[in-house]
Simulated assay, not measured.
Amino acid sequence: MSRAAAMLGQVQVALRGGPVPMLAGLTVAGFALTAALPAAFHLSTVCGQISVADIPALLAVGAVLPSFPALALGWLAMTLAMMPLLVAGPLAHVRRCSLPRRRARAMGLFALGYGICWALAGVVLAPAALLLALSLAQGTSAALMLGAALIWSASPVAQLAHNRCHRTLRIGAFGPAADRDCLRQGVTTGMACVATCWPWMLLPALTGAAHLAAMAAVAAFLLAARFAPAGPVRWRVPQALEVLFGPRYLTGLLARRPK
């Protein structure tokens, strides 16, 4: 099977399962929530505005820095905006393998497991982004993170994580076993997604006032990468670039689109 046919298969699996409109709605809601939150809720608020050396003086005069709960809510809003469409395939698998009366419960348990992974990741990544924003100039920190993200996406470790993003598990039909399987699928997908995407999630926090545009660009980049099928674990061109700028893959997709 060619890579183009495999990518088309990823799209077809997601569309057959039916969750795409719902996930697109969650994405829109995430962007709207992020845009509506006050500046104090965004990591990008401090990017290029203050430095580590300024913190003692700001605290001495009673200046209010972004609080942990505020930054946590901003992180969750950003995750809601950027991640839903990336799980269309695994969520479609959970929905398809569940009885009609259990589908809402099954998808909810998947979402719980997936969300826990990104919430725990935020405990590490949000402070890391804040430290970078305080330590370096805005343009410098964003450029360094973009370079790091591209290198990471080209690495064998990222390829291994990407392969696991496509992994689907057996989903039971009844009782606690089915609930456990749905939750486990969410955790499995979430862990792989965090390992694949973590440097890209830091980038919007380092772009200052342009964070919404950066979020949209990164979300599109990651979605393109997710369409790429599993591949050999080795150094390679980031898969999103292959999908977006590889004419032979685009030609193959058009040639094989469903009639």
Rank of each mutant, 00 (worst) to 15 (best):
A178T: 05
V123L: 15
V52W: 11
P127N: 09
V46K: 04
G172I: 02
D179A: 11
A216D: 10
A128E: 01
L253Q: 07
T196N: 13
A36M: 11
H93R: 09
L99D: 15
M22K: 08
Q12D: 13
C193T: 09
R257A: 14
L212K: 10
L125S: 00
L71N: 03
L202N: 01
T251A: 13
L136W: 11
G25T: 04
R184Q: 11
C97Q: 15
P232V: 07
I171E: 03
A154I: 00
V218G: 04
T34M: 09
C197V: 02
M215Q: 15
L212A: 09
F31L: 14
R16A: 13
V13N: 14
A148I: 06
L206T: 06
A39F: 01
L37I: 04
L130I: 00
V28A: 15
L86A: 07
W200E: 04
S153C: 05
A106T: 02
V187P: 05
L80R: 01
M83L: 14
T189E: 14
L146D: 03
R3I: 12
M145E: 05
L71Y: 01
H162P: 01
A81F: 04
A214R: 06
T34I: 03
M191N: 03
R101Q: 10
P258Y: 05
L59K: 13
T251H: 09
A121F: 00
L99Y: 07
A126C: 01
L33N: 08
R234L: 08
P69G: 02
L120F: 09
L212Q: 05
R95Y: 07
G147S: 14
A142C: 13
A210S: 15
G62P: 02
A63Q: 10
G186H: 05
P229M: 04
A161V: 01
T45W: 10
A195D: 04
M1K: 12
I55L: 13
G17K: 07
F31C: 10
T251M: 09
L76K: 07
L134W: 07
S153G: 08
A14T: 04
H211K: 07
A220V: 09
P90M: 10
L254Q: 15
M22D: 05
T196Q: 14
M1C: 11
G252L: 12
A228V: 03
A39G: 12
D54V: 02
V123M: 08
M7W: 04
A70V: 04
A32I: 05
A220F: 08
T45K: 11
L37Q: 12
A214Y: 10
I50S: 11
E242F: 02
A142F: 05
P199T: 02
S153I: 01
L37H: 12
R180L: 13
A217L: 15
D181L: 04
L183K: 01
C97F: 06
A137Y: 06
A32S: 10
W118Y: 09
A230E: 14
L202Q: 01
